[in-house]
Design a protein around this nucleic acid. Structure first.
Ligand SMILES: [Mn+2]
Ligand SMILES: [Mn+2]
Ligand SMILES: [Zn+2]
Ligand SMILES: [Zn+2]
Lengths: 143, 143
DNA sequence: TCCTTATTGAAAAATATTTTCAATAAGGAT
DNA sequence: ATCCTTATTGAAAATATTTTTCAATAAGGA
């Protein structure tokens, strides 16, 4: 199910700002802050309000259409989300962000921690960071 | 090595705001935002400036004395960090935050993702969330 | 006790986010 | 095609958060 169907299903409208934001995120290769999304939308001659960016990101996060990426300083980066269990990998140097599928098996770790702490665990946040291929090359050259 | 030694070692001073902030974090059982830390410090009659809270948290994060906890909405929660590799477990309901030691073995997952994406991975962010023992009890009673 | 300078905090500036509300446009009904 | 309902928008104002500046202070070695 794509995002348009998802909105229909919930009785939500397919508005201009919503289209514009998805379009910006589709073209992005890094996560983008609300401000950045707004700016790129204007750059593409899709004039939308910054308020709508905030509202749409909140809605889309709720619907699982976008996900938040948590950086060292910045935690307001949003990326398009593919359906299913995924996490993100971020380049320290250029912010390139790619998704990887959540195939990790944390179950034994989770069980261990549940026993140790008495908590019930039902959610996890996992993110990797390092250098993307491009930035590795640039670093090599400099050496 | 405790935080005081660490500061000495770096030629940094043991100031009143720094003591106050550590003291607040030591007493906390959830992560705290800069504002919350400031308020609790005032409540404890340790009058420090909010600016110093920001500056100290930045410094202490750098030094590995505190760590940031990333929540669903809020990502400005700080907790005291024990030395070594740790992650955090947060209660959805009451925000109770406990540390667990980073004994997880992500190496095969990391290798897999490195091969798949061409990235070099050197850092990870892992956080669990769920219900703490207290909040489990409260939920049970309500049922 | 003195001296150096890292650090503080008040204030202002810069940014970021949320709220409000009248105007608009999405999309189902006719 | 046109009408109608109402979800949604965007301008503006209100709030909240974070950073910058800089003179005053106090940490801590001499
Ligand atoms: Mn996962
Ligand atoms: Mn770990
Ligand atoms: Zn890169
Ligand atoms: Zn709890």
């Amino acid at each position: 199910m794509d995002w348009q169907e998802k909105l229909n299903q919930k009785g939500l409208r397919l508005t201009h700002p919503r289209r514009a934001i998805i379009s910006v995120l589709e073209r992005a290769d890094t996560s983008l802050s609300p401000q950045a999304i707004h700016q790129r939308s204007l750059d593409a001659n899709e004039e939308i309000g910054l308020v709508s960016v905030y509202r749409t990101l909140e809605l889309f996060t709720e619907l699982g259409l976008v996900r938040r990426v948590h950086g060292h300083s910045e935690c307001q980066g949003y990326v398009l989300a593919s359906p299913g269990h995924h996490h993100h990998l971020v380049c320290h140097s250029c912010d390139a962000t790619v998704e990887f599928s959540g195939v990790e098996d944390l179950s034994s770790l989770i069980t261990h921690i549940e026993e140790e702490t008495g908590f019930t665990i039902n959610e996890h946040l996992l993110q990797f960071s390092g250098l993307c291929p491009d930035c590795q090359r640039k670093t090599d050259i400099r050496d």
